[in-house]
């Protein structure tokens, strides 16, 4: 029995790990500028775990494969003649365990990792401008007004460049002059993951109540987004929403009415 045989699946797993960790971001950055430089650790852990499981399954489904790849462990740990390799492998496993533990306990300056929901469920009612709005049924009153549409969009653009551009950027990419000062970073409206998948009432609520208005699922980082209903009028907010969708070319999500 070849005692080092299990190193083959192990090497395969390691190669795949590095391909994910370094290769994928590198390849991405070559293909498209601005691709993520990392795969988040939390996802990485799951990927590696299941890659390891998959590799083991593929290597052990036949009896021969099982004996060749798993047998050596029995050989190392149960055969009295294998003292040296047993000792070496125990030390290696021990060191690996120590390294993993150290990674977990070593102090860092990072905020603790927590699940944060970017688009939390809106409350059914929200209070703004001293009124109560029902988020479920709210519609943008200016959208129907076809006559003044262009004028409204233009006015919305003014609101945007006077108030929002510092954070959300002149091209709405979330990269305004101050963007990297915030955690979480300002939303990128061109991205199909923000306003493109939200209804106007949701966006109205998010602008009106800002970071402090977020429910608890959006913690621990209440965003730096200001509470705009304290600074803008209701009409200005509706106008800026028109502008956001017009500029980015997205259309707001329409919620199908249910019976």
């Amino acid at each position: 029995m070849k005692i080092l045989r299990p190193l083959i699946p192990l090497t395969v797993i390691l190669i795949l790990y590095f391909a994910l960790k370094e290769g994928v971001p590198y390849l991405g950055s070559q293909l498209h500028e601005g691709t993520w430089p990392v795969i988040p650790t939390s996802v990485m852990k799951m990927y590696v775990f299941f890659i390891a499981v998959g590799v083991l399954l593929i290597f052990t489904f036949t009896d021969d494969g099982f004996k060749a790849n798993i047998g050596p462990f029995a050989e190392i740990y149960l055969n009295p003649d294998r003292k040296i390799i047993r000792f070496v492998s125990a030390v290696l496993v021990g060191c690996f365990g120590a390294w993993v533990s150290y990674q977990y306990v070593k102090p860092t300056f990072d905020a603790p990792v927590e699940l944060r929901s970017i688009h939390p469920a809106p409350p059914s009612n929200a209070k703004m401008w001293g009124k109560t709005y029902s988020i479920g049924t709210l519609k943008n009153p200016l959208r129907e007004d076809k006559e003044n549409f262009a004028a409204n969009v233009k006015a919305g653009g003014e609101v945007y460049y006077k108030n929002c551009f510092y954070c959300h950027g002149d091209r709405m990419l979330g990269k305004g002059p101050f963007w990297d000062g915030f955690t979480p970073v300002p939303a990128n409206f061109v991205d199909i993951g923000t306003i493109a998948q939200l209804s106007e009432s949701f966006v109205f609520w998010r602008i009106g109540t800002g970071g402090p208005g977020l429910p608890s699922e959006a913690t621990p980082w209440l965003s730096a987004m200001p509470v705009w209903h304290e600074f803008l009028s209701e009409e200005e907010v509706w106008k800026v929403i028109l502008f956001l969708y017009d500029y980015t070319g997205h259309s707001p999500r329409v919620i199908e009415p249910h019976h």
Partner: peptide, 16 residues
């Protein structure tokens, strides 16, 4: 909904 450390969030520059 990805779980990211705050360093990762800044490196990545967004959630999408």
């Amino acid at each position: 909904t990805l779980i990211m450390t705050s360093t990762e969030v800044t490196q990545v520059g967004g959630t999408h």
